[in-house]
Design a protein around this nucleic acid. Structure first.
Lengths: 349, 349
DNA sequence: TGTGTTTATCAAAGCGCTTTGAATAAATCA
DNA sequence: TGATTTATTCAAAGCGCTTTGATAAACACA
């Protein structure tokens, strides 16, 4: 059942039928109803391929999921982000094209998507401090929104980011208020933009309390559970180990807890941990007294924001670059407690 | 730059240029080289929208990501599965269309994808024991492959599944060999096909050792970290608590470990845990002595298998339903140990 | 030399829609 | 009443490819 068949059945021209179904005003209400009814009865759906060619729009947004060739690592945040973005796409009649590509030939993948006309816009995931994709997409004249930012890129572009600097400043400050002064940082890969911003926040908090950041306590790596485990083990072996740490994601924080358990230590008592929490659906760190003290933001919501910003750009509903900052909230959970010295002082009373 | 422009530049017809680029034999080698060279020089890419209309194929595979409306839960396995499937799609020139839809109107989503001609095939995720999607897709005449199976569906269809029954039979048997006889099971939602098969395996192992399955020890739920935590806490409060458990995913297993830690118990000593491990990239349960004893299978590999099976069906390279069973491997890690009675016996020696 | 085959190329139709520009019928105005 | 809008409808062109069927040139064979 295509448009031709349908219009033959109705005894109308394809023009009229098409207009009736697409809500154009130059069709009488009577025929519109008739058309809709008959279309439904024969359950007609316009062919997407033909529609896309005719309109020149693909009604599709591209997401590129880079998979690190070395570690075969997939960003665990991705699924929840996509879930948020996907909601918005559905509501607006867009499809989501997902391109899985090893991180080495990512650029080629963007170029292909654009030149083939396969998508109307692109979402950029996981920006590096100096990310070449932004210039590339500007060059290709492809609408795009970055989830995050790229510090070294000076041009204007659209982004939705969480306030990473403030998040880690608050997390670190919170630990200092508890009396900690040896605070480690377990961050993501050093070339990721979020990692850089979080480092800045961490250092700012320390400096505000007159603590000189100790490079030995600042760690960067791919945020797996095992990374948290290994780093924590090494930190515990230091002559002057930290009493607290800020961690870039709940996943390595779980590794940290495992390492502590293995050493007979208890999280929250022997080691305070504040985690950044992307609010993953399978790991809800909630409740009255959640497992982890955390600075939380919803990736899912970020997905929604990015998607609607992009659609607004494509449809021309929004002019100029869309730049949006999301704030985190600090939730106190079971993974933090007073520093040892402070605890002793409290016990003496 | 479109085909018309390109053929004008070359002084050839669109037919010849199209054929030259698509590797048809009725073009002389000389002109083919010339065409390829000029196409590259002007970096021409054929318009995907036009190509799809002309060929009648969309060169796109659909994946539907159902998001439970209640819990906003996204299957954590999804990202890794997609990563595997995506590799295969890229190699074969297919795009991946991802449709995020709340689990209530999932059927509508499949129907739409098929009727609009947006995809050439569909991958079915997370089949229920009695899954209506299979009949629906057969009805729509849409090629599809199920990741998993649907026990109550009697028709022939293509699937790639892991041997869930055997996995849990082995896991349970392993614990029994260690002397455990109060073994709990933390499974997924009871209507999921994999959960049913795993239950069968669990019960078979118990019965083989003359243990009557205790309904009190058999739990079903959405596999979040918190689920593992809560269930483990409740189990510990039983008058006759289990000494071991088999868990359907590493994620709730982490919750179990947390609950044990909170009760001052140690995993592997006070409670033995064997987990099903989908080998998530951000949670590599590997090494000489991994954190969890587990029955492991690679979701990523499953993604690859499903994708190539589907492409083979679409292109007609493979006839008849593709049915493929993947076996798990059992890896002994730190989360299991002898049952208390056995340990006492060992210590007396 | 003429006939049949193979090779290389092309013009044009077609994929199933949207959209332009024209045509007709109905309604409004002077 | 005729002239002018306005409301509906339509035929046909176009989106940028692929593919069919035709044609011309080159080659082979007797």
């Amino acid at each position: 059942m295509n448009l031709k068949d349908l219009s033959n059945i109705l005894g109308l021209s394809q023009t009229t039928v098409s207009r009736a179904l697409n809500g154009y005003p130059e069709v009488s209400e009577a025929t519109r109803l008739k058309v809709q009814e008959v279309a439904r009865a024969h359950n007609y759906s316009p062919n997407a391929r033909a529609k896309r060619l005719a309109t020149g729009r693909s009604m599709t947004i591209g997401h590129i999921l880079p998979v690190s060739k070395k570690h075969e690592m997939v960003n665990p945040v991705f699924a929840d982000f996509i879930a948020g973005a996907g909601e918005v796409y559905s509501e607006n009649g867009y499809d989501l094209l997902l391109s899985v590509v090893d991180d080495e030939n990512e650029a080629e993948s963007y170029r292909s998507l654009a030149m083939r006309g396969a998508v109307d816009g692109i979402v950029v995931h996981g920006p590096k401090v100096d990310d070449a994709r932004i210039a590339l997409l500007q060059d290709l004249d492809m609408p795009f929104v970055v989830h995050g930012r790229s510090s070294h890129v000076k041009s204007d572009y659209s982004w939705v980011d969480v306030n990473n600097r403030r998040a880690f400043e608050r997390a670190t400050g919170f630990l200092m208020d508890l009396g900690h002064n040896r605070i480690a940082m377990l961050n993501g890969l050093a070339d990721m933009d979020f990692a850089v911003r979080r480092t800045i926040g961490y250092e700012a908090a320390l400096k505000a309390g007159n603590i000189v950041p100790d490079p030995e306590l600042m760690c960067f790596g791919e945020m797996t559970e095992n990374y948290g485990f290994e780093v924590c083990r090494k930190l515990l072996e230091l002559p002057d180990p930290p009493t607290a740490m800020v961690v870039s994601s709940i996943i390595p924080a779980i590794g940290v807890r495992r390492a502590l358990g293995g050493a007979g230590l208890k999280i929250g008592r022997d080691m305070s941990v504040v985690s950044h929490d992307d609010d993953l659906s399978y790991f809800r760190n909630t409740g009255d007294f959640p497992a982890f003290t955390a600075v939380r933001s919803s990736v899912r919501e970020a997905g929604r924001r990015v998607a609607s910003a992009l659609i607004n750009m494509i449809t021309g509903r929004e002019e100029g670059p869309h730049q949006e900052m999301l704030e985190v909230e600090l939730t106190v959970g079971q993974s933090t407690g007073p520093a040892p010295a402070m605890r002793r002082a409290m016990q003496q009373r």
